[in-house]
Amino acid sequence: MDTSARRAADTLPSPWPAVGRTVVLLTALVGVLLTAFTWPAVRSHVHDVPIAVAGPPPAVRQVGAALDQRLPNGFAVTEVADAAAAERLIRDREVYGAIDVSSGTPQVITASAASTAVAQTLQGVAAGLGQAPGAGRTSPVRELVALPADDPRGTGLAAGALPLVMGGLLAALLLTRLVRGTAPRVGGALAFAITGGLAVAAILQFWFGSLDGSYLANTGAIALATAATSLSVIGLESLLGYAGFALGAVTMMLIGNPLSGTSTAPEMLPGWSGTLGQLLPPGAGGRLLRSTAFFEGHGATHSVLVLTAWLVFGVALCLAGGLPKRRRRLAAAPDESTENAAA
């Protein structure tokens, strides 16, 4: 009788207040998604982007004043003596580009592999310097670290950021639903990180031509980022259940991915958001992959430390979440043994 009544109730149309609550929830979710993915892009601008200016101090100060006039607070200038020192800072990923006035005629040095957006901004600066009194029609631009010829705009690297995050979340979802036990889940996440890293690096490097450098180093960067993402979400789910999975997904997808700065540069994101993004796996993973692909690993230390910390954090949460289950199994074992002996 009760079962038939419940079935009859299930076939009745939902009350309009329930429909209204669902519509309000969907509207809020759309607003959150739009804000998360659009706000960083709309508010991105050049501010405190590190560059080098090479040359004698008077000329460097003159260039700094011209930059402040053209883009107030746009650049954080590091003064160096010559072009060689500026190039060294670019290759070490301490600056995004440089302006060399050591030979008298200004020359702009760019590194599109570090950020196409910053490189384009510096090209605009070159045009502005060329309009200065006594300058030629335009200042020459020299590319120091270029993107691959098959992907000169870095589209593959920028577009691949979201699938990498989704891959880590998908791994966490399937492993928590289909695999039981802390050790099997952790082992599965690490195995997928390796196989997924091999596959993604091969596609980006050998098919799309979006990556240079060592294939194994690029694989390691992708694998570390994937493992950090999936294990941290698995750990949250192990400790907090569905709420933990939702928290991890929101952190990685709605915060980490939009604030990663992969398509522009972290320094171009509004306010503190770029710094926050580099402390999350998507941002750290994107910067690490640029370092391995185009800069021979220079500038990778911070990203490796961040990703390793997230990986260790995820494993610790998995262990903490698995302890109560292990204790329940151990507590149940003597009871089962007693029942078997009595039988």
Rank of each mutant, 00 (worst) to 15 (best):
P163V: 07
V19A: 09
V108P: 00
A309V: 08
T155P: 00
A119Q: 02
M268D: 10
A117T: 13
S337F: 03
L224G: 05
L247G: 07
T292F: 11
R185P: 00
E336V: 09
F294C: 08
L178A: 14
A111Q: 02
V30Y: 06
P40Q: 10
P57D: 11
G97V: 14
D2C: 02
P40S: 12
G314Q: 00
S230W: 00
V53Y: 05
V53R: 08
D100Q: 14
L25N: 02
S230V: 00
A158D: 07
T138N: 08
W39M: 14
A158Q: 12
E296N: 13
V108H: 04
G235K: 02
A132D: 03
A98G: 06
L178G: 01
G128L: 11
A191E: 12
S291H: 06
G220N: 05
E336T: 10
M253F: 15
E79P: 00
T38R: 09
V63G: 05
V77M: 12
T338H: 06
Q131C: 04
F313L: 15
C318R: 01
A199E: 04
A217E: 14
E237A: 15
T121V: 15
V186D: 00
M268C: 11
V165L: 12
L254I: 07
P324K: 10
D10F: 08
G97E: 14
V125P: 00
L276H: 01
L211Y: 02
T22V: 12
